[in-house]
Design a protein around this nucleic acid. Structure first.
Lengths: 206, 206
DNA sequence: GTCTATAATTCGATAGAC
DNA sequence: GTCTATCGAATTATAGAC
């Protein structure tokens, strides 16, 4: 289910600035976002922004880490849960991503851009490859229940099928000539379909 | 096969500027690219840039339309060829995309960003949905040779599996801990694998 | 066509009053 | 903490010589 965004009526000045910065940075990226716009959006003064956060860079770094955190948040928990099975984890991962992206549609492009512009800042803690999920994957292949697939491909396929449509949303809506509601319905369909597709891909030459 | 990038030793000043602009805009986006950098990269003077192209915006627009063109280029031909079959077209599409992206790895993020920032500029001519490919798809489903899949999903899946890894390249290389050569080999593998996967997805409940 | 020099504007950051 | 006013650097664009 879609988790409602933290409304948290924290109307402190600091939070108002962060909220405005989150909105603008995530939507337009670092360079295209002007500190004056953030201040206006936050309903405060430009000087105040530098009072709370030393510089534009510092503020950006905070928002970026927040977004990266959301992006990877939960994944680690899902992927290391020893009580859920291999295919079930794929369902949970896909559901988690699509649910989050329906609420925060600009995060994917933001993260992809940031990863390219500043690869140093990518968090190391995302050790998908040492996860319990991977252990289960190895076991499934060993038992012959699924065919072997380079883990890199598996990862790309899960993320790509779940995330790509959101990154390409304007193109998808334009080419298919659908409105926002129809797009969201299409994405909800994918919650069920993507895991089925992944399963089918893993059944080739089983 | 990978088509070598048009080297075209057109050393005219105009082409030198366009070439430099293409490189920088595509890699860093509009705001982060400075006209001074373009001039330096082109080995010419800043004033000359404004002499040939009226403004930074005008120059950007030219590069953008070029990139969008490359992105969609060839697809229309592949997709409307009446001599190739349904599954063969998928192979050709995937091969085409991956080959191009191995040469121009920054184009996907550029196009996705531009599509979001300026959806008005998306070319209308990309009528994938009225293509011969779609006609063949309908025929295949009618004959029961493949299962029905919402054409939107089919399009997203083909593009996502081919394009997403390039947009997410830094993350993929970081998480998998692979170098450029290994990444490119992984992508070459996908030329064969993606069409097989798509086929498997279309075989569910056939 | 190409250059140097500079105008005009934008932008991040700070000084200083309240 | 919050504001107004402004500085200084960066950046786009243009004027004018060659």
């Amino acid at each position: 289910m879609v988790v409602a965004q933290k409304i948290k009526a924290d109307d402190s000045t600091e939070e108002k600035i962060k909220s405005a910065a989150r909105k603008l940075f995530t939507k337009k990226g670092f360079s295209a976002t002007k500190t004056r716009d953030i201040a206006t959006e936050a309903g405060i003064n430009l000087a105040l922004l530098n009072y709370y956060f030393r510089s534009k860079e510092k503020l950006f770094e905070i928002i970026m880490l927040e977004n990266l955190g959301h992006f990877f948040q939960g994944v680690s928990i899902i992927v290391n849960d020893e009580k859920t099975g291999f295919h079930n984890k794929i369902e949970l991962l896909v559901d988690f991503y699509i649910s989050r992206l329906l609420v925060n549609p600009d995060v994917p492009l933001f993260v992809l851009n940031e990863a390219r512009n500043n690869p140093k800042n990518l968090p190391l803690q995302f050790n998908l490859m040492n996860s319990y999920f991977m252990k289960q994957y190895m076991e499934e292949t060993k038992m012959g229940r699924i065919s072997k697939m380079n883990p890199g491909h598996l990862m790309i396929n899960i993320l790509g099928l779940a995330i790509f449509p959101f990154a390409a949303r304007p193109m998808v809506q334009r080419i298919r000539n659908i409105n926002d509601t129809e797009f969201e319905e299409l994405m909800l369909e994918r919650k069920k379909l993507v895991p089925q597709w992944i399963k089918a891909m893993l059944d080739i030459n089983k």
